[in-house]
């Protein structure tokens, strides 16, 4: 169970964000974020649309540069790494992008096998075999392997993208809305798969979701982001009596409450 898995691993921080801020022009998206994710832990970030969840992931991955603050992965400050170290670090990561971000010039199986072939230098035949296994794990048959991403439905693209993220069995996995656009049954298959990655492979996971059922299933810990600030973190068991009215409103999906309908950022 998730409750024991947090306790049994030594609480060594895998990802630390220390007073991280990020703005685009005059618009502040992240304000002084402090977040620690321990090794082997599954953290879920919840929060309204535009609250800065995807930007948080991209800052940790080094795809965007934070304006201030320190981000450490496995104890190392990512801003101080040279390109070789960063390259090595990326080999530990798997990332599911919110929009899928599949390579449309490559067939499905090569998308899934991309990290194996180019990152891990595996030969193509073996990589294809693993890719087919991963495609199977996300609930699709070998028949899609030779199609191109444009020939798949939105939900299928999302699942292929997830297969690509986990193909190399990465130590750290980021999922940006893994179940959005999936039917409820498939969403549950994906939840199980994510849980399996964390419990069986011991991966550290950071997921973003709006889907509270999914959050309850995959999370050890939850953090809520509101207007660029983390307003609550705690273990999943405490989510229902967090004592935070923002969290309460969000997880119950109520239109009325402290979270205004127009979530324009305060300057």
């Amino acid at each position: 169970m998730s409750k024991t898995s947090t306790k049994k691993t030594a609480t060594k921080p895998m990802i630390e964000m220390d007073h991280v801020s990020k703005s685009f022009g005059t618009k502040t998206v992240l304000k002084d974020i402090n977040l620690t994710i321990n090794k082997g832990e599954s953290m879920v970030i919840i929060g309204g649309s535009g609250s800065g969840k995807s930007v948080t992931l991209k800052c940790i991955l080094g795809l965007m540069e934070n304006d201030s603050g320190v981000i450490k992965v496995d104890g190392r400050d990512i801003a101080e790494m040279d390109s070789d170290e960063r390259h090595a670090l990326m080999n530990k990561f798997g990332m599911l992008f919110q929009g899928g971000a599949l390579f449309d010039s490559l067939p499905v199986w090569e998308n899934v096998a991309f990290g194996l072939i180019h990152g891990r230098k595996m030969d193509r035949r073996q990589a294809r075999k693993i890719a087919l296994e991963k495609i199977d794990a996300v609930g699709m048959g070998a028949s899609v392997a030779d199609l191109y991403p444009a020939e798949l439905s939105g939900g299928m693209q999302k699942r292929i993208s997830l297969a690509r993220a986990i193909a190399t069995n990465p130590e750290i996995i980021f999922f940006d809305e893994p179940t959005t656009g999936l039917d409820p049954i498939m969403a549950d298959v994906i939840n199980d798969l994510i849980k399996k990655c964390v419990t069986d492979l011991g991966a550290t996971a950071l997921s973003i979701t709006h889907d509270m059922a999914s959050a309850r299933k995959i999370a050890d810990k939850v953090a809520m982001l509101y207007q660029g600030e983390i307003i609550w973190t705690g273990p999943i068991e405490k989510l229902d009596n967090s004592g935070n009215e923002y969290v309460d409103q969000f997880i119950n999906g109520r239109a009325n409450g402290p979270i205004a309908k127009h979530t324009e950022h305060k300057k």
Binding site: L61, M90, G99, D104, G115, H118
Partner: peptide, 14 residues
């Protein structure tokens, strides 16, 4: 625009 370039970096390909 479709984040494929970001995806390349996360798959450790420059």
């Amino acid at each position: 625009v479709t984040e494929q370039i970001d995806a390349l970096s996360t798959l450790s390909v420059s």
